[in-house]
Design a protein around this nucleic acid. Structure first.
Lengths: 205, 205
DNA sequence: GAATTTCTGTAGTGCCCGATAAAGAATCTT
DNA sequence: AAGATTCTTTATCGGGCACTACAGAAATTC
C-alpha cells in the first residue's frame, strides 16, 4: 500500500513521470468502453504510457485503480439535487434527473451506459463490484431522502423504481438505443412517480 | 461442429455415457449462479461428471453450450401471453407478467435474476451476449405486439419501459432484494403502463 | 560529490483459461 | 469374427492474465 502523498510529503526521490489524474481519466475511458474485465493491465499501462510496476506503485492493483476510477466518475455525474426546485419538490426533479441520465448514458458513443451500474454486475472483482453497489445505493438513498420530505410512505417504492429504471437505461444505452428512446423510457417511468406522489394522501397531514 | 443427432441417426459407435439435457441443466444452474465468466470449463465438466473432450464433442465450445442453455432457460420462463385476458388486454397482463418476473427472479437463492438479461452485459463472449440480446429483444417485441393491438402508438414506449424495468428487477434480484421489494417495483412500473394506455386516445377509433 | 529515496523499464513469475492430440474403450455393421 | 465409427480418458497445449524481482535512472539532502 504505497501512500501516494505521504512519507515526508514526497520531497525525496525520483519524481513521478506521469499525471495521476490523467491516468485515471484514461482508465475511466477504457473501463467505460469495455468494462472492468474487458480491460487488461497491459491495456491500461500501454494506454497510460507507463510500465506495469509504475502502475502498481501508484495505484496498488487493478481493482484499487478501478475503485478510484469509480469514485472519480461518480463525482462527475449529475446528482438529483441539482434539479430540485420549490414548485415541485419530487416528481419534476426525478423526471429531469432520469432524462438527464438517459441523455448522458447515450451521448458518448465510446462510453455508453453507467460505469457504476455496469460494474455492479459486469465485474469479476468482488470488492470492486461491491464498491459500485455502494455508490449506486448512495444515489438511491438520496432519491429516497428527497421523496421522504413530502411523502415518507413513498420514499422506498419510488426510489426503488427509479434505481431499477436506471439499470434499464444503462443496459439499453449499451445496446445502442438512441437518446430519444431512452428519454421516452425515463419520461414513462416518471409517470409512475408522479402518480405515486399524487396518490391517496393517507400519510399526509 | 459435431451435429448431435445426425450422421445416420447415431446408430454407430460407442454411445454417449451422459445425459445431454442433464448436462445442460447442470450448466444452467452454474451459469445462473455465477454468470458466464464465473464458470470455467473445469467447473462445468467436473459438475457434469465428464472430461473436457466429451464436452467439446457434444457441445462444440463453451459459448455454444451457453447459447443452448440460454434457449433452454428461455423456453422455461413464463411468457406474457399466459396472462392475456379479454377484460384488460394490456395493462393487467403486463402488471401480472412483471410481478411474475419479480417473483421468479428472486425465489431461488442460487439462481437470482434473469439469465438472459444478465448475459446481455455480463458475458465476455460476444456471440453469446448477442444471442442473449436477441432473446431479450424477442420478448420485448412480444410485449410491443400485444400493446399494438389496442394502442399502436404506445407499443414502443410501453414495451421499452417494460424491458428496462426488467433489467432493474434482474439486477436488484441479484443484489439480494427481497421479493416484496421487487414486486413493488413491478407494480410501480405498471402504474405508468396503465396511465400510458389510458392516456389521450388520439390514435383510437 | 556521496548517500538516500523513489520511480521506471526489462524481463519475467505462476496461474488459470479454453481447447485439443492421441490412444484406448465401447458399440455398431457386415 | 473384422472393420468402422464414436465416445472417453490422460496428458497436455499455447496464451493471456494480474502481478513482481531486480537493477538502473532521476530526483532529493547532506
Amino acid at each position: 500500500m504505497p501512500d501516494k502523498e505521504s512519507s515526508r510529503l514526497n520531497r525525496l526521490g525520483r519524481p513521478r513521470s506521469f499525471d495521476l489524474d490523467g491516468a485515471l481519466e484514461v482508465g475511466q475511458r477504457l473501463f467505460h468502453e469495455r468494462g472492468y474485465d474487458g480491460v487488461s493491465l497491459a491495456d491500461l499501462t500501454s494506454a497510460i504510457g507507463i510500465a506495469a510496476p509504475s502502475f502498481y506503485a501508484a495505484f496498488g492493483s487493478k481493482a484499487d485503480f478501478f475503485r478510484t476510477v469509480l469514485a472519480r466518475y461518480n463525482g462527475a455525474t449529475v446528482s438529483i439535487d441539482e434539479f430540485v426546485t420549490e414548485d415541485d419538490p419530487i416528481a419534476a426533479p426525478i423526471e429531469t434527473f432520469l432524462v438527464a441520465r438517459a441523455v448522458s448514458y447515450s451521448q458518448d458513443a465510446l462510453a455508453k451506459g453507467c460505469l457504476v451500474l455496469d460494474a455492479m454486475r459486469n465485474c469479476s472483482d468482488a470488492g470492486a463490484a461491491l464498491c459500485a453497489a455502494q455508490i449506486a445505493e448512495e444515489g438511491r438513498r438520496r432519491v429516497s431522502e428527497l421523496v421522504a420530505i413530502t411523502r415518507p410512505d413513498m420514499a422506498e417504492p419510488i426510489s426503488d423504481l427509479v434505481a431499477s429504471v436506471m439499470h434499464g437505461l444503462s443496459a439499453y444505452a449499451r445496446q445502442g438505443w438512441p437518446t430519444e428512446r431512452l428519454v421516452s423510457v425515463a419520461r414513462g417511468a416518471a409517470l409512475s412517480v408522479r402518480k405515486m406522489v399524487e396518490s391517496s394522501d393517507l400519510a399526509k397531514s
